[in-house]
Design a protein around this nucleic acid. Structure first.
Lengths: 234, 234
DNA sequence: GGACTTTACTTTGGATCCAATTATAACGCC
DNA sequence: GGCGTTATAATTGGATCCAAAGTAAAGTCC
């Protein structure tokens, strides 16, 4: 989604997300243009886009500055996403799952089971889960019959969440991650159950709670606080 | 907010909202630039902004096209706004209203009562209510302690809702509007009540329902369908 | 010595120019 | 006559240039 993005917007997004600019730092068009080896024009276009995405904010008439993201911002963004995905889940439950959709969701549930079945994680499993998780959520949001929800979520997710794509190196971190993913898997299964049974309110509630798995479940699972952010916010 | 906006973005927003371009119509940079009497550069910048706002969408590499807004889009956008404002209301209720904030809300409640006290509307009252309503909602969203909710709502409201700012001319329309505003006022008062009592779930529910006043309450109040959209979606 | 004014420089906004990609249309071939 | 190919026109993306606004600094006056 943003790795192979060679556009100026994509590159800037990456740079900002990786913290190459200090928060609150003023970004000059010329400086950035030189740094990226392009002219001012694409940078100007990119600045406007990134402003709308919320990564930059206007600094009066002195151009733009990197928006600060406090911990509160992150929590609130996660909360908003949870609420929006909760809405999608409720809609989906209330409108009734088609058999095809139920099967499709079940596929990803099964993939999750397979992934976690061997009782531990290897490094690349985290990426596999990330992909799986993305599909799972996209299916629900995309099938809710509301063209607006997906857009709203997408706009919100421009905030640098996954930026701290926690590097999992030692086995201890892998073990922490494994326990987290087990919980996420359980939540996924409960959500699908609610969707199947047409339990809109329950599906919504579960989805809202599920959004906080990266934020609120750490201490509970004895995960402590992951370094550099609090792990993935799936 | 968008009347005196002389910027290219503002003017284009207005033109699109007023339907000067057909939905699905391809917008060429040169054509628009000439029509607005400016060069291509500001138009290009504006297009990127309007794309992010959701008013335009890319037409492959053939530039941009005016996004179509179906009735479903509007309903879903209203739903999303309701959910987000509902979140704000719940947060506010749960964190507890300060005395100052309670007073401030009460001021606008009273203004609403005063406005509707005389038993009927005159034309300019609709604008007064619009202003009042805006303040009321902004206070709640702005005081929820979540910097993200307001942004998300703002982004969502770029969709051309209030565009069809229904011209109220005849007394019959004024009467319909009056009954609608009475209901809105009641909902406002209930919401404040819930906020005061710290009833988060109830505040959220009421706010969600309140969002639909422009869409779902027409037939119930014998308002029929307002011409040119369905009236204001306050 | 401090504050105000003026000047020079930095920086953004707008316009024009050039290149590259793409769509359209014309032409030729099967 | 239809389809494929080629060439031309149109349009977007990128670069450079000019103007306007603002900031910072230097100088002067009180």
């Amino acid at each position: 989604m943003s790795d192979g993005d060679k556009s100026v917007v994509g590159r800037l997004r990456k740079l900002i997300g990786e913290g190459h600019f200090q928060t609150g730092e003023r970004l000059g068009e010329v400086a950035v243009a030189e740094q990226l080896g392009v002219s001012r024009t694409p940078v100007r276009l990119a600045f406007r886009t990134l402003e709308q995405e919320g990564l930059l904010q206007r600094a009066g008439k002195r151009g733009f500055m990197v928006r600060e993201f406090t911990e509160v911002d992150v929590r609130c963004a996660v909360e908003v996403r949870g609420v929006l995905e909760g809405l999608a889940a409720r809609r989906l439950a209330e409108q009734g799952l088609s058999a095809a959709l139920a099967d499709e969701l079940q596929v990803w549930i099964q993939k999750g089971r397979d992934l976690l079945a061997k009782g531990h994680l290897v490094e690349r499993d985290a990426d596999a889960w990330s992909e799986l998780n993305r599909h799972f959520h996209e299916i629900i949001v995309g099938s809710a019959g509301s063209p607006v929800i997906g857009d709203a979520i997408a706009r919100n997710n421009h905030l640098p969440f996954a930026a701290a794509d926690s590097l999992i190196i030692d086995s201890e971190a892998l073990d922490r991650e494994y326990r987290k993913l087990q919980l996420a898997q359980l939540q996924h299964e409960l959500i699908v159950q609610a969707l199947r049974h047409g339990e809109g309110a329950r599906a919504e509630m579960l989805m809202r709670e599920h959004a906080f798995i990266g934020l609120r479940y750490g201490e509970l699972l004895g995960l402590g606080r992951a370094p550099g952010g609090e792990g993935r916010y799936d």
